[in-house]
Computed example of a mutant assay.
Amino acid sequence: MRRISLGVVAAMLLAAAPAAAADKVTFRLNWIAYGFHTPFYLGLERGYYKDEGIDLTIGEGQGSVRAVQTVGAKGDTFGLADGGSVVAGVSKGAPVRAVMAITSSSPYALSARADAGVRTLKDIEGKTVASAPGEAGLQLLPALFARNGVDASKVKILRVEGAGKMVAVAEKKAEALMAGLDNQSITLPRQGVPLVDFGYAANGVNTMGLTIIANEDTIKSNPDLVRRFVKATARSFEAALKEPEASVKAGQKVKPDMEADLAMAQLKAGVALMNSEASKSLPLGQFALKDWQDTIDLMKQYQDLQTDKPADAFFTNAFAGKGGS
């Protein structure tokens, strides 16, 4: 009988051993899938999450507030939510924390018809601005006006439901609207209504943008899972930055009705918001304390936020960039 070396036996046993089961993870988007969500689908398609031992399911969302609630209740492992919703939720007891920055600049904008004669924010005086009731951009509009010398009493607010604000501007019932740089600022010009955008962040009123959130229990009990998810997500966005066309195509495979040109414009708009002035020198995914502090200060002054928590109670840099290596 031929002898079999111990090394060969060990190799045979290793090959026969079942592979470790991947962690089943659910990730809740902040809204219906659109262009800037496609890097997540690119990472899923290319196996970046699988490489980190994660069996990922991505679900569309119904707003950042809902994502905070769902992750807080452990209905999803991770979620995508804007910083303001994280601050509001945590201040009311939601056990979540932001673990990775996706966009550190606010997407909010006051956007005016190009033919309305609005060249500076001061020019909005005497004009009508269409807005949906309760949207965060409207609540922070007084801050935008105050920091840019606009007399708020000279601006009329037309409150309309949902997409009605785009209709109001298209039909010239309002000269401007509360917009998102990655949303209405793209879609209205594509419908034949050119706009002039006044981004909040570019005009002195920045709030923390989109973040990856996790339940505090997950962070404490399974920090390695959080680290691996953040690592795969960073890899996904790095790939999307290099190959945006591939990112859009990955999104279309999951959502066939996604229009390529619009999705590309949304992706590029989101990429432009990834860094803030405070975070531009930080590694991908890390937070700048100033962005959170600015968000909290604005919410306390204009949105009646009640909290005594410090800014670093809402996020951690333990998993992104050098913190996650």
Rank of each mutant, 00 (worst) to 15 (best):
D82R: 00
G323E: 05
L158G: 11
A263R: 04
G47R: 04
A311T: 04
A318T: 05
I32L: 12
D304E: 05
S279W: 03
D291G: 11
A214P: 13
D308F: 01
L273S: 06
A263E: 05
E175D: 08
S131G: 09
R3F: 10
V150G: 12
L289E: 14
M178A: 10
I4W: 13
P39K: 14
I4C: 06
A278S: 10
V205D: 12
A152N: 03
E125W: 02
L44K: 14
G72P: 10
L110S: 11
G7E: 09
S185Q: 06
P194H: 08
T38H: 01
D123K: 01
N148S: 12
D82Y: 10
F27N: 02
D304F: 07
A163D: 14
D76K: 05
R97H: 00
R28L: 14
V248C: 04
K165I: 01
V71N: 04
G323C: 11
I212F: 14
I213K: 09
Q62W: 09
D257K: 03
N222W: 09
A88F: 14
T307G: 03
G149H: 14
A11K: 04
P310R: 02
R113M: 01
N317C: 05
P18T: 08
G59S: 04
L13Q: 01
A152S: 15
K24T: 13
G72R: 03
G323W: 09
I4P: 00
F145A: 14
R228K: 13
L262C: 01
R3M: 09
E125P: 10
R46F: 00
R147G: 00
A265Q: 02
S236C: 06
R147T: 13
S236K: 03
L241G: 06
A94F: 02
E60D: 07
G321V: 13
L241V: 12
G47D: 12
G93C: 11
E243N: 12
M208L: 08
A163W: 11
A311C: 03
T233F: 07
Y200I: 08
G53L: 09
P310G: 07
A170T: 10
D151L: 03
L225Y: 09
G47K: 00
A10H: 05
D55S: 12
A234W: 00
S236P: 10
L56Y: 04
V248F: 06
Y302V: 09
K268P: 04
S185T: 15
P107R: 06
Q301F: 05
A22H: 01
R28Q: 13
M100R: 06
N222H: 15
F229M: 10
D76Q: 07
S325D: 15
T295C: 15
Q252Y: 02
L210W: 09
A73I: 01
D55L: 03
S276V: 07
P18M: 03
F315R: 04
Q286R: 14
L141V: 14
M264E: 10
Q293K: 12
I102H: 05
V96R: 08
A176S: 15
E259S: 06
